[in-house]
């Protein structure tokens, strides 16, 4: 019994120590952001790696999700004779929830894992150490541009997910199932509020972008400098990011829409 308590205490201390390290780390990263104003090309390169290269998976997934969502909703709504509100339902589902959350999960799998693996391998092959010995701070030079690129990319990718998802819903709902095109767009326009729905969705994606990129760069920088260490760090990035996205989604949804 005592042993079990001791082990639990040890595990809790390890988690707290790691959280402390992660907090100190992100404060150093944030302190390195002003330098990027002078060298924005470093961020642009990472925007391409982190953001542009994630577009394909986001667009394809969004199209599929929008089409399936439209299909499912159509048959449910038709039972109540309300299939005309399909556009509104698809748009609200995507803009409020599915866009930020699914884009976040895909972003963690595609860009987050890549960031962790890249930084972890740079550590394992002493590239970060050699940078330090060249009097270059790797947190400012390597981590800060990647962090900023991740934070900027995520809301754009989530917005893209929602837009393409709506298009997928339109193709199935209007093109395949015969919902009236005018009703699809006009009910969406009338019932999707810019501040309550779109802006809150964007806010969620900004929060997810910060959390996922923070986890990804920290896991890479904190990885054990071995093949196994980098592999475990990459796995942790995907798992922890997924949990964090889902947990924060619940909290943010409760805060944003709970009082209605």
């Amino acid at each position: 019994m005592i042993e079990a308590i001791r082990l639990t205490g040890e595990a809790a201390l390890r988690v707290l120590a790691r959280l402390g390290r992660a907090t100190l780390f992100i404060s150093q990263v944030i302190a390195g952001l002003p330098m990027l104003l002078r060298r924005f090309s470093l961020v642009v390169t990472q925007l391409y790696e982190v953001g542009v290269l994630s577009i394909a998976i986001i667009v394809i997934s969004a199209l599929a999700v929008g089409m399936v969502l439209s299909l499912q909703m159509f048959y449910t709504l038709r039972d109540f004779g309300s299939e005309q509100i399909l556009g509104q339902v698809v748009a609200l589902s995507l803009v409020r929830e599915l866009g930020p959350v699914l884009a976040g999960l895909l972003f963690a799998g595609r860009a987050g894992s890549a960031l962790t693996a890249e930084i972890g391998l740079m550590k394992a092959t002493e590239q970060l150490s050699s940078m330090e010995m060249m009097a270059v701070d790797p947190i400012k030079r390597v981590v800060a541009p990647r962090f900023l690129a991740g934070v900027l990319s995520m809301p754009l990718l989530a917005a893209m997910f929602s837009a393409v998802g709506i298009l997928g819903g339109y193709l199935v709902g209007v093109g395949l199932l015969g919902v009236d095109s005018g009703a699809f767009w006009s009910l969406m326009q009338a019932n999707v509020d810019f501040y309550d729905d779109i802006l809150n969705g964007i806010l969620k994606s900004v929060v997810f972008g910060i959390i996922i990129t923070w986890i990804a760069v920290f896991e890479g920088y904190d990885a054990k400098p071995t093949a196994e260490g980098v592999s475990r760090a990459t796995m942790r990035t995907v798992v922890h990011s997924a949990f964090a996205v889902l947990a924060f989604d619940f909290i943010l949804t409760a805060l944003m829409f709970g009082g209605r």
């Binding site: 590239q127 050699s130 330090e132």
Partner: peptide
């Protein structure tokens, strides 16, 4: 460090 140089055992080139 600007006045030091270190040749790493693993070369540590930026890949």
């Amino acid at each position: 460090r600007k006045s030091m140089g270190l040749l790493f055992q693993a070369s540590a080139l930026f890949t």
